[in-house]
């Protein structure tokens, strides 16, 4: 069985789907938690220290350790989760720590004058955040978040250690069954590469959508058909 046959087998496709779900779920939770923590960093002292402590703990220990901890220690405390859930918990807890720093950087990147102007217009702090600060911070945060996304896709391979049937574990099991390490690993690598490529393309689309310059250009003068084909963002 060639690596291509393996890559196209149903086993590898369902494994890729699991890797995909694991990555997206962990990232979504990571970004959401990161935004909350980044905002909490602007809060008064005790809450701020709690956030610092969290980031210190989860950035300061290996993800693999966190993963095995969630998988082996939580059941001792009466918390029983499936291996997949354990992986999502560990990966997103870890991701939150990194995203908190990234989002904080984005919030700091929005000019102070923006808040001042919004305050003078009578917008509440929450509304300033929602309508003025976050939309601008999103643009700043997107590129590093994209990096994190692709990093997460590969970090998710660690979940194989706690028996999540992802691409990594599937490749290893296949290899152990037929001793074709080359074929199995190359098949898994192909799936990872396809997923990375898809993520990269999707991120570029989002970045374009948030780019005001393009939005304005496409509004006023619809791009000629030839360029529209080359550039999916220009409609």
């Amino acid at each position: 069985m060639s690596f291509l046959d393996k890559a196209l087998s149903e086993q590898f496709f369902s494994a890729a789907a699991l890797t995909f779900q694991l990555t997206v779920l962990s990232m979504v939770l990571g970004v959401a938690g990161g935004v909350v923590l980044a905002l909490a960093k602007g809060a008064p002292a005790p809450l701020r220290w709690l956030v610092d402590g969290y980031v210190w703990l989860f950035r300061g220990t290996p993800v693999l350790l966190q993963l095995i901890f969630v998988f082996n220690v939580l059941p001792l405390w009466g918390l029983n989760f499936s291996p997949f859930t354990c992986a999502v918990i560990a990966l997103s807890l870890n991701e939150i720590a990194y995203m908190a720093e990234i989002v904080r950087g984005g919030l700091l990147g929005v000019d102070r004058g923006q808040r001042t102007a919004a305050r003078m217009l009578g917008l509440s702090e929450a509304k300033i955040l929602r309508w003025v600060v976050l939309p601008q911070a999103a643009r700043l945060v997107l590129p590093p978040t994209g990096n994190q996304f692709i990093g997460m896709l590969k970090t998710s391979a660690l979940a194989s250690v706690v028996s999540v049937q992802d691409l990594m574990l599937t490749a290893q099991r296949q290899a152990a069954a037929d001793f074709d390490y080359t074929g199995s690993l190359v098949a898994a690598a192909l799936h990872y590469l396809v997923l990375t490529t898809l993520f990269t393309i999707a991120l570029r689309q989002v970045e374009r959508r948030l780019d005001v310059t393009r939005r304005a250009a496409s509004r006023r003068s619809p791009a000629p058909a030839s360029t529209a084909l080359l550039d999916p963002a220009a409609r």
Partner: peptide, 23 residues
Amino acid sequence: FQQFNLFPHLSAAQNVALAPVRA
């Protein structure tokens, strides 16, 4: 303000309408 402080992600009309709509 000296530096205008317009909201760069909104059009001129959206800049003007933001506070009346949201606040």
